[in-house]
Measured scan of single mutants.
Amino acid sequence: LQLFIKTLTGKTFTVEMEPSDTIENLKAKIQDKEGIPPDQQRLIFAGKQLEDGRTLSDYNIQKESTLHLVL
């Protein structure tokens, strides 16, 4: 599923993930694309901070959802 990642600077980029992927996987993918170390990434969806060990489906993140990346 394609997700939109929006940064505080207003930049938006996309990543391609599976619902079974963990937040950790997502942070690694963001590191590949943007060079931001996972330990500096905080991801927010629907007002909640996402925890590394959980999956996208745990948070009911669907295709074309927008996640906010806070550094």
Rank of each mutant, 00 (worst) to 15 (best):
Q31P: 01
Q40K: 14
E24G: 12
K6P: 01
F45G: 02
K11E: 12
I30L: 04
I5D: 00
Y59V: 03
D58T: 05
T22W: 06
L67V: 11
D39I: 12
T12L: 12
K11M: 10
Q31G: 14
N25P: 01
K29N: 05
G53I: 07
N60L: 06
D52S: 07
S65P: 03
R54Q: 13
D21K: 05
S20I: 07
L71T: 14
K63C: 04
Q2G: 06
I36L: 09
K33D: 04
Q31L: 09
D32A: 14
L43V: 05
D21I: 03
I61F: 06
V15M: 07
P19K: 07
I30P: 00
G35W: 04
A28L: 13
T7W: 08
D21Y: 03
E51P: 02
Q49G: 06
D21S: 11
I23M: 03
Y59H: 03
L71K: 11
Q2P: 11
K63H: 14
D21E: 13
L50E: 00
S65K: 04
D32L: 09
K48P: 01
S65M: 08
L8S: 14
I23Y: 02
N60C: 04
Q40F: 11
G53M: 14
S57K: 13
M17F: 09
I23V: 12
S57T: 12
M17I: 11
G47T: 05
F45T: 02
G47V: 02
I5M: 02
E18K: 10
E24H: 11
V15K: 00
T22P: 06
I23T: 05
A28N: 07
E18C: 05
T22S: 10
K63R: 14
I30F: 01
E24Y: 15
T7Y: 14
T14M: 11
D39C: 06
I5H: 00
L26R: 00
P37Y: 06
T22H: 06
G47D: 08
N60F: 07
L71H: 08
G10R: 07
E18P: 05
Q41R: 01
S20H: 10
I5G: 00
T22R: 06
K27G: 01
F45H: 12
Q40Y: 10
V15C: 03
D39V: 07
L50Q: 00
Q2R: 08
L69W: 02
N25G: 12
P37G: 06
L71N: 08
I5E: 00
T55N: 06
I44S: 09
E34S: 08
P19W: 08
T9Q: 07
E24W: 10
I61Y: 02
D21V: 03
G53Y: 15
Q31S: 08
G53H: 09
G10A: 05
L56G: 02
T55I: 14
A28I: 13
L3F: 07
L56F: 07
L71G: 07
T7S: 07
F4H: 11
E24D: 13
Y59R: 01
L8K: 09
L69P: 00
E24L: 14
Q49H: 14
M17R: 01
N60A: 10
I30E: 00
D39R: 14
F45C: 03
A28F: 13
L71V: 09
R54G: 09
Q2C: 05
V15W: 02
G35R: 06
K48N: 06
Q49Y: 08
K11W: 10
A46P: 01
G10E: 05
K27R: 08
R42D: 05
E16I: 13
R54I: 06
Q49F: 10
E34F: 11
I23L: 05
Q40D: 12
R54Y: 11
K27Y: 03
K11R: 07
M17Y: 14
A28S: 15
P37W: 05
A28D: 14
R42Q: 13
T66M: 15
E16M: 11
L71D: 14
K63Y: 12
K27C: 01
L43W: 03
T55F: 07
F4K: 11
N25T: 09
S57R: 15
G53N: 13
L50T: 03
I44E: 08
E64F: 13
L56K: 00
D58S: 09
L43Y: 05
L43I: 14
E51N: 06
T7K: 12
T12I: 09
T12F: 08
S20K: 07
D32H: 13
R54F: 11
E64V: 07
E64M: 09
S57I: 07
Q31E: 08
S20A: 15
S65N: 15
D58P: 00
E18F: 13
F45K: 02
L26H: 00
P19E: 15
K6V: 14
I36K: 02
N60G: 09
D39E: 12
E16F: 15
Q31K: 08
L26N: 00
K63I: 13
R54W: 15
S20D: 15
S20R: 08
N25C: 05
S57M: 15
L56S: 01
N60R: 07
E18I: 13
L1G: 06
S20E: 09
L43E: 00
F45R: 03
Q49E: 15
V15Y: 04
K33Q: 07
L1T: 04
K6M: 12
E16Q: 10
T55W: 04
V15H: 02
K29E: 06
I5L: 03
L50C: 03
N25E: 09
F13M: 06
T7G: 06
P19C: 04
P37T: 09
I30T: 01
T7I: 09
T55P: 06
N25D: 11
R54D: 05
L1V: 07
D58A: 05
E24Q: 07
K33S: 14
R42L: 13
E16T: 09
Q62E: 11
D32G: 07
I23W: 01
T66S: 05
L26P: 00
F45N: 02
I61S: 02
F13A: 02
I61L: 06
D39F: 10
P37E: 08
V70R: 08
L56T: 01
L71E: 08
Q62Y: 14
L1A: 06
F4L: 13
N60V: 05
